[in-house]
Computed example of a mutant assay.
Amino acid sequence: MHVNPKQRRRHSAEFKAQVLAACAEPGASVAAVALSYKLNDNLVHQWRRGRGASPVPSSTSTTVAESAPQFIALSLPLSPPTSAPAPAPAIAAVAVEAILLEFKRGALGVSVTWPVSAAADCAAWLREVLR
């Protein structure tokens, strides 16, 4: 019996969840995971974006949900009150207000400091990073 090579394969929700869980592991690349499961990496990218993935049974859904991005609270420094004059510093040092971003994923941690004067640029950069 000859199988048509153009016929699409159907993958179960459990299989998709297993592949997505492997992609969520720290240091895993989508291309390497796709290759190990004999899949096209574009297909796995589609599954990661939520296209083509059907609902997953509750036993494996916690694994996928744990790898989802979480809310990151940012604290911005308060500007000094304008009504009270600031005391003159003993040393000529300039205080620069900055935005501090800290990311953690598994064992990897990254800290980024961004000047408050460029907050719009920081927001644009952060949108790209979180894509």
Results as ranks from 00 to 15, higher is better:
Ala95Trp: 11
Cys23Arg: 01
Arg49Trp: 08
Leu20Arg: 00
Thr60Ser: 12
Val3Met: 12
Ile91Thr: 14
Ala88Asn: 13
Ala95Cys: 13
Arg8Leu: 06
Val56Met: 05
Ala21Gly: 02
Arg105Gln: 12
Val30His: 01
Ala34Arg: 06
Ala17Leu: 04
Lys38Phe: 08
Ala68Pro: 07
Gly27Leu: 05
Gly106Gln: 00
Ala31Leu: 10
Ser58Lys: 11
Gln18Arg: 11
Ala98His: 14
Val129Leu: 02
Gly50Lys: 03
Asp41Asn: 10
Leu130Lys: 01
Ile72Tyr: 04
Tyr37Trp: 11
Leu35Ala: 13
Arg10Gln: 08
Ser83Lys: 12
Pro81Asn: 03
Val94Gln: 07
Ala86Trp: 09
Pro81His: 03
Leu130His: 03
Ala73Gly: 10
Ser59Leu: 08
Lys6Glu: 15
Ala119Asn: 04
Arg10Gly: 03
Asn42Cys: 09
Pro77Thr: 05
Val94Asp: 05
Ala31Lys: 14
Val30Ile: 12
Arg9Gly: 04
Gln46Arg: 13
Val112Trp: 00
Ala123Cys: 06
Val116Leu: 14
Ser12Arg: 03
Arg8Phe: 03
Glu66Pro: 06
Phe71Asn: 10
Ala65Ser: 14
Leu76Phe: 13
Thr113Arg: 10
Pro57Lys: 02
Cys122Ala: 09
Ser59Asp: 11
Ala21Lys: 03
Leu108Pro: 01
Arg8Asn: 08
Pro85Ile: 00
Arg127Trp: 01
Ala22Val: 05
